[in-house]
Design a protein around this nucleic acid. Structure first.
Lengths: 340, 340
DNA sequence: CCTGGAAACGTAACCGATAACGATTGCAGT
DNA sequence: ACTGCAATCGTTATCGGTTACGTTTCCAGG
C-alpha cells in the first residue's frame, strides 16, 4: 500500500514550464529578474505538479532556512511543557520548528548527544537551536539557547530561579516544624541542580539547623535514580521527617517508596518536589512542589533564539524566571512536632 | 557571542587523514574495501576533528536515513501525549525522530499543511512519517501512518473506538436522568468527529430520546471554536441540562462559558468531554470524560510505521484502540430530575 | 618473470536546490 | 541602423555527502 510516486523536483517543474531550474528557483523565492509571463507559467506548472521545495536540498545550499531546532534527550512531561511554550512563541513568526529526539535513551550515544544532534541539524537544517537540559557545553555554527544550562555556562540560556525556589520549599518544611529534612539532589553538572542544593543548605543554615550530609542522596533528575536513594533514607533507624527532592519526577518516586515501606504521607513523612509537572497534581495526596513554568521557559527560550537568529537581540543573555511554592497534601507538620 | 567555527566536513577529515572523501565515507558507513590501517587513520582524524556527518547531506544522497518523522498541526496536550508514546515505541530501535511543526497556525498555509510538511520531509529526510489529525488524504513516497485519520481513509492509521466511547458517555448522562443533552461536534472531516457524533445520536435514539438538531453545535476540535457554541446553547430560554463535547479542549471551554454565565457545574449543567487530557483532572470540578490513550495511539502508530519502513508488516493496517469512561465531578443528575 | 584477479583507493557524477556569472534579448537614445 | 544599458534567463559551480566506475597496488599461481 505504499505510494511510490517519485517526488516532483524542481527540474520537473522547469521542464514542464519550459525554463531552467534557476528560473524556477527565482520564482519560488520571489527573486527579482523574471518576467510576469514566465512567473505565471512557472506558477501554473508548480500548481499542476504539486511541487513543494525539498527542505533538505534547500538547506544544504542556503544559509537561512527559517527553521529553528530543538533537541532534547528524552521526552517526558518536562519537555512536553517546554514545547508548548516554544510553539506559542513561534506561532505566526515565520519560523517552523524541527524537534530532533534520539531513541537511544541511556544508550552508548548518550554522552554528548546534544552535540551530536546539534551538529547534524545546525550544520544546515536549522537557523538556530534550543537545547533542553544539556549534558555539557555545546558549540555550534548557529545560535544556541540552553534551557536549564550546565553549571558555569555563560552561553545564552533560560533558567528558573532555582535558589529562591528551593529555599522557599525548605523554609516551608521548616515552618511546619520539620528539622530532619532529607534531600535528593539532581544531576550535578546542571546549574539548576546545584542551585537547588544551595537553596536547601541556605534555608537550613539560616534557620540554625545543621546540614547533615548523610541526609543528602545524589540523584540525577532521572526519576528512577531516586528510588534506591529514598529507600536508603527511609530505612535508616532515624529516618528524616521530610524529604525535599530536586525534581517532581524524583519526588513521585519517593512517594512510591514511602508507600511501599509503610510510611503514610504526610503523616509519617512530608515530601516536596520541584517543577510542578501535571502528574504532581494527580497523586493522592497531591505533591507540594515548587512551580517553575516550563511553558514559560520554552516561551522565553524561543523568543530569545528568534532574536538571536534575526540579529536583533538586546536583552541580557541569561534570563531567570521566578518560581512559586504550590502547597498540596504531601506536606504537614511532623508527628512529633518538637518545639525547641 | 555566536560561535562561528566553520563546521567540520568530510573533506576536512579526508585531508587530515590523507585519503579521499570516498574512503572516509566508506569508513563512516562501515563499508567493505578499506584496509585496517586506513580505517584507523580515518577514525583518528574523525576523533580529533570531532566530525559528525551532516544529516542533510546524507539524506539527500541516500534513500534510507533511519529517521522517522512526525508532523502535527498544533502542539497541545493531545500531541504531547502522543509524542511520549511514539518516543517510547522508538526507544532503542535505531530510529531517531524528527518532529516538524509549523508556526502558521490558522495562517494561510493551514490548508494542506500536512501535505506540505510531508513532502518537504519525506522527500529525503525521513524514512516514513506519522501524521497527527490530518486535514485530508496525503500522498508520500515513503510510508505514512495517520493518527485519527480523515473519514473514509483506507490508509494505515490508528484510531480510538470513538463510536463506543461516545455512546458510553451519552449513556452515562442518560443514566443520570438527563434528557436534553447538547453536543458540540468536532471537525467534520475527521473520522473521529463523525464517530463521536454517531455515538451521540445512537445513544439518544436507543434510549428513545429524539435528536434535537438545535442542540448540536458544529465545532472543529479547536478549543476556541466551542466558546461561541456553548454560549448559544446556554443562553437559550431552554438550555440543555448536559453538554457532551467531542473533545476535552472544547469541554473545558464549555466549563468556562458556564461559569461566566452563572451556571453551576454539575448543579445546573453536566459536562462530558472526550480525550482525557491531563488538564481535565485539574479543573474544579474535574471533567468527566472518555479516556482515549493518546500515549497508546502514538505508541501503536510508531510501531506500525517502524514495521512498514522495514517492510515486515503483517497486521491489519487500521488499528482501533478501546476507550473508557472516566467519571469525575462535572456530571450529576439534573436538578429537576423528571422520572418519566 | 609474467599474468590475472581481487583488494584498496581515487575520480567524478549525482542527489535537489541556490547563486554567481555570463549570455541573450529588448528597447531607448542618438 | 548602431550603441549601451537593463532586464531576463541559462550555464555552471557548489553545498556535503554517497556510490558507480575506473585505476592502481599487491600478491598468488603458472
Amino acid at each position: 500500500m505504499i505510494e511510490v510516486n517519485a517526488p516532483v523536483t524542481m527540474s520537473d517543474v522547469a521542464r514542464a514550464a519550459g525554463v531552467s531550474t534557476a528560473t524556477v528557483s527565482r520564482v519560488v523565492n520571489g527573486h527579482y529578474g523574471v518576467s510576469a509571463r514566465t512567473v505565471a507559467q512557472v506558477r501554473s506548472a508548480i500548481e499542476q505538479l504539486g511541487y513543494e521545495s525539498s527542505l533538505v536540498a534547500t538547506s544544504l545550499r542556503r544559509s537561512r532556512t527559517n527553521v529553528l531546532g530543538l533537541v532534547a534527550h528524552s521526552f517526558q512531561s518536562y519537555t512536553a511543557e517546554v514545547l508548548k511554550g516554544v510553539m506559542k512563541a513561534l506561532s505566526r513568526s515565520g519560523f517552523d520548528l524541527i524537534i530532533y529526539a534520539n531513541s537511544d535513551l541511556y544508550g552508548s550515544y548518550s554522552e554528548g548527544w546534544e552535540q551530536r544532534h546539534l551538529t547534524r541539524l545546525s550544520g544546515t537544517l536549522t537557523d538556530g537551536c534550543i537545547v533542553v537540559t544539556p549534558w555539557g557545553e555545546v558549540r555550534s555554527r548557529t545560535p544556541v539557547v540552553a534551557i536549564d544550562p550546565v553549571r558555569g555556562s555563560t552561553a545564552p540560556s533560560v533558567i528558573s530561579d532555582n535558589l529562591a525556589g528551593a529555599t522557599t520549599a525548605v523554609e516551608h518544611l521548616l515552618g511546619l516544624g520539620h528539622r530532619r529534612i532529607g534531600f535528593i539532589a539532581g544531576r550535578d553538572s546542571l546549574a539548576s541542580a546545584w542551585s537547588r542544593e544551595e537553596g536547601y543548605r541556605a534555608a537550613l543554615t539560616s534557620a540554625g539547623v545543621p546540614v547533615d550530609p548523610t541526609l543528602i542522596g545524589r540523584g540525577d533528575f532521572n526519576p528512577e535514580s531516586a528510588t534506591p536513594l529514598a529507600r536508603v533514607l527511609l530505612q535508616r533507624p532515624d529516618p528524616p521527617s521530610a524529604i525535599f527532592a530536586a525534581s517532581d519526577g524524583m519526588a513521585l518516586k519517593v512517594l512510591e517508596v514511602a508507600r511501599e515501606l509503610g510510611f503514610s504521607v504526610p503523616g509519617d513523612l512530608s515530601v516536596v518536589g520541584f517543577d510542578n509537572i501535571p502528574e504532581s497534581a494527580l497523586t493522592q495526596p497531591g505533591l507540594t512542589t515548587v512551580d517553575q513554568s516550563m511553558y514559560q521557559l520554552g516561551y522565553e527560550a524561543a523568543r530569545m533564539l528568534k532574536s538571536l537568529v534575526t540579529g536583533e537581540w538586546d536583552e541580557p543573555s541569561q534570563i531567570v524566571l521566578p518560581t512559586s511554592l504550590v502547597v498540596r497534601g504531601s506536606t504537614a507538620p511532623p508527628k512529633s512536632a518538637t518545639r525547641p
